[in-house]
Design a protein around this nucleic acid. Structure first.
Length: 602
DNA sequence: CTTAGGG
DNA sequence: CCCTAAG
């Protein structure tokens, strides 16, 4: 029932975080404390007083975490963290990470942890029952356990452990964004996320990109390397040395369950993420700089997350909360702390006249409530339904009409399509079972091992759950265009994976590729892969309009030339090999073909 | 169910 | 991306 966030340093220093019911505003009373669902971070003053942390302090903490804690190989994404916990600035304060600062400071000052604890419980006896701890393993064995995460489910009924193992070695030398210019970074960013950014901060861009790439759990799976804004085959050219490989080697995969759960910073609290309803288009549109500002924490913080921000947050966060550590493709030697803040939002509270809706989302396998904003629950469309009905009273044709008109997905469960949708939109339970069952894991792993990819841990992929719950019909594109909301833009990494898959299994074996390379992408069907490949082919054959003009006008993700080249290569190869020698290549791998060949011979 | 191709 | 035909 109690979400425990424990921080543990080498010196055993511990910092307590106090759970405080964040009921609208008042500080916790003993009664409220009894409700362990909500926790609030507070600052532990030198004299033992507990003071609600302010947002600014929070920022500072993150700053500390990011800039100073070099030994840490996890990092906290300020933007995301803040996005999660920042609030209207209600006096009650929301969960704060402030306590971390206390920890760090106390560590440095060699504060006696016991003393701290004691003081805490003396000074605030009423809080004692709900004290939570953050457990931070700052020791060198980080790579080993820092990544694991578990979840104490509120209610105490369930204790699901979802652990993911980080594979740092995988990242080593595979991504080098350091040499890229801002412009290049922008391109890469767009290629990675499918949208543009106006952020000019290199660090931010690099981090974001590397995050996007690695989080898609694939870059490492492919044989591509990103270097100098180019995707190159591994082996081509020097491997970048962005990653110093200072992290611990990965222990053999397979025993995730046994991994200690040290870095678990679960912050549960009732909280409402206010929807920033800006009338000012400048602010609202400029998501990039919004992120930037937030992440930069130096700028005027305390901004309520914008719609777009929240959207992005939920997307990125969903990836990040796999428990996977992000390694930054940055030369700065210091590692960072991954502060995974899982926020439980359980209320819909009117703010400024607007009601903010939250929904339970599955992030990283946890049931997490995230702000809905434009991500309305994927359900039957009501808006146009009647209108369509009206115009199409015939009944029979109506369904088709509606489906077509709305891109469906959301029609009645009886529709066969629905199963797919349901499957995609994983409820916490679903996710949970998926992870626990892990039927695919062993299989996948063994397969990958057999192929020689064993070193590329796939486990993380298993764990990656996406909130596949976009259902709004369309969404405006940074470019001004619109695209279907539930269309998932192909990320660069996905494309790379696809290419890799095709090269390995051959075009046409979509289901294979799907199973092996896209096991974790529940939302990509084999058909999707096929379609994408088709598009890639088309793109690869088309004149490589490498000007920004095309990109600008299209608003589409620019596919790096190297990939297109690869695509063409593969296409030619397969076009040549397949028709002529028929099934020479296939024959070897396909029993059926062999058989046919033999029988035909006889 | 998977693949292929048109919309 | 969606839908359908065909193996």
């Amino acid at each position: 029932m109690e979400t425990v966030v424990e921080v543990e340093g080498n010196d055993e220093a511990k910092l307590k975080e106090c759970g405080i019911r964040n009921s609208t505003s008042s500080l916790s009373s003993p009664k409220q404390i009894s409700d362990p669902v909500v926790y609030k971070l507070v600052r532990l003053e030198g004299d033992g007083r507990i003071v609600p942390a302010t947002d600014d302090e929070l920022m500072e903490v993150e700053s500390l975490l990011i800039d100073d804690k070099c030994e840490m190989h996890i990092y906290a994404d300020p933007g995301q963290t803040v996005g999660c916990i920042s609030n209207e600035g209600s006096s009650s304060g929301i969960a704060q990470l402030e306590s971390l600062e206390g920890l760090l400071q106390s560590r440095n000052k060699e504060a006696d942890p016991d003393k701290l604890n004691a003081r805490l419980e003396e000074t605030v006896p009423s809080l004692a029952p709900s004290l939570s701890e953050s457990h931070f393993n700052q020791s060198g064995s980080f790579g080993e356990c820092s990544h694991s995460s578990d979840k104490l489910v509120a209610g105490g009924s369930t204790l699901s452990v979802v652990t993911t193992k980080p594979d740092f070695s995988k990242l080593k030398g595979e991504i080098c964004l350091d040499n890229l210019s801002i412009k290049e970074l922008h391109e890469t960013f767009k290629a990675t996320f499918g949208r543009e950014t106006t952020v000019k901060d290199k660090q931010w861009l690099k981090r974001r990109i590397s995050m996007g790439l690695t989080n898609s759990c694939d870059v490492s799976v492919t044989s591509f390397i990103i270097k100098d804004n180019k995707l190159v085959k591994k082996g081509n050219g020097e491997i970048s040395n962005c990653m110093d490989g200072s992290y611990a080697e990965d222990p053999p995969i397979g025993n995730q369950k046994d991994l200690p759960t040290s870095l678990v910073s679960q912050l549960d609290y009732h909280q409402v993420v206010p929807e920033k309803r800006l009338e000012n288009p400048n602010l609202d549109d400029n998501s990039g700089s919004d992120d930037h500002q937030t992440e930069q924490r130096a700028a005027k913080r305390a901004r309520k997350p914008t719609k777009r921000y929240i959207e992005e947050l939920s997307e990125v966060e969903s990836k990040e909360s796999n428990g996977r550590l992000m390694n930054l493709a940055k030369n700065s030697g210091h590692g960072l702390i991954s502060l995974k803040s899982h926020v439980r939002l359980v209320r819909n509270v009117p703010l400024g006249g607007r009601t903010v809706v939250t929904r339970l989302d599955s992030l990283g396998g946890y049931g997490i409530q995230v702000p809905c904003v434009s991500r309305v629950r994927r359900s039957r469309p009501r808006k146009n339904f009647m209108a369509l009905l009206k115009f199409n009273p015939s009944g029979m044709g109506m369904e088709a009409t509606v489906k077509k008109a709305l891109g469906d997905h959301s029609f009645p469960p009886d529709d066969g399509k629905e199963s797919r949708v349901l499957k995609a939109s994983s409820t916490p339970e679903h996710v949970h079972h998926q992870f626990i069952g892990v039927p695919e894991k062993d299989k996948q792993f063994s397969v990958m091992s057999a192929i020689g990819l064993g070193h590329n841990t796939e486990l993380k992929c298993i764990n990656s759950s996406r909130d596949s719950d976009d259902n709004v019909v369309t969404v405006p594109t940074p470019k001004g265009g619109i695209r279907r909301k539930h269309h998932r833009a192909w990320t660069l990494s996905e494309v790379m994976k696809l290419v890799e898959g095709v090269s390995r299994y051959g075009a046409g074996r979509w289901s294979e590729i799907k199973r092996l390379a896209f096991a974790s992408y529940s939302y990509r069907t084999s058909v999707d892969l096929k379609d994408k490949w088709r598009n890639l082919l088309k793109a690869s054959l088309a004149p490589q309009d490498n000007g920004m003009n095309s990109r600008k006008s299209t608003g589409a993700m620019p596919i790096p030339a190297p990939i297109l080249l690869k695509v063409r290569e593969l296409a030619e190869m397969q076009a040549q090999v397949l028709p002529n020698l028929s099934s020479t290549k296939i024959a070897g791998s396909t029993r059926k073909n062999v058989h046919e060949k033999q029988t035909g011979f006889l």
